[in-house]
Amino acid sequence: MRHHDDDPKLDADGIARRGFLECMAWAGTGVLWSIGGGLPSSLGLTRALAAEAPTGAAPFTFLQISDSHVGFDKPANPDATATLREAVGRIAGLPVKPSFVIHTGDISHLSKDKEFDDADQILREVGLPMFFVPGEHDLLDEGRGKSYLARYGKGSRGAGWYSFDQNGVHFVGLVNVVDLKAGGLGNLGADQIAWLERDLAGLPSSTPIVVFAHIPLWTVAAEWGWGTADGAQALGHLKRFGSVTVLNGHIHQVMQKIEGNVTFHTARSTAFPQPVPGTAPSPGPLKVPAGELRKLLGIATVDVVSGDGPLAIVDRPLAG
């Protein structure tokens, strides 16, 4: 496990509290993932931009972006479209072009056609293949998700789940924002879990697995609904694999947890921050002082460095 001078202390649950507090100031761009030796690792986009292009063979890389909330115009960020555009600009400036982009949901704020249209127009500028899973904000049309499926669901099953293989890595996109139950958390449902079991059945246990879904598959904060009720069932089918990485969004802040061979990671939003659980009466958008948003965007970069042990989140303020 690689350590840095500014490596934060991890709590017993492997969560870096100091990192959370610094991250809660927010700044979202995207997370660049690179796979070497079957272990994905990520770099905050700002840091990746600053890195020199590697002189050796380029690793297989992909990028995660999340929670664009196109259409959001409230005080926490009056123009979520502009910050998405800014994030896309940063992707375009990467020295190493990722192979594709995964969007972990809440593309739109209210599932309006114009919001999806605007998001598509901006994301098209990335010029890379994109893979989506829906957030709960993407299923608010009258058809409760028909609009999302028509736009993003080609080749998917059920409410939009699917899998694909890239460079020996098996990717699984899951949907845990449909048919949510009162009082509960995110929900995958029996059909999707049965499909996941079948989908994984033929794979050797040495296959690196990347699972992505909107709401965290592990329980981050039950009192705010930040978890997936039947997430453990899905993870049960992943236990035999040597390398499993779970990428989520929804909570608009970076959190990471390592459990056995499974690394859980949540990405920032490109739209607005949400508070750290326990620090606010509700998970509503966090308004930071005027002028802080883009400044914080520059300083809240987070690396996740892979090594021969568990991954660790390292907060790396760029300013100061």
């Binding site: 209210l110 599932s111 709960e136 949510l180 139950k181 009162a182 009082g183």
Partner: peptide, 27 residues
């Protein structure tokens, strides 16, 4: 879906106990 400051009304004619929730945030 109710955005900021939007409202929704429902008239309860039947007697009984009606539990409800937010389908986006089911907690």
């Amino acid at each position: 879906v109710l955005d900021t400051d939007e409202g929704f009304s429902f008239t309860f004619t039947a007697i009984g106990t009606f539990e409800y929730f937010c389908s986006l945030h089911p907690h």
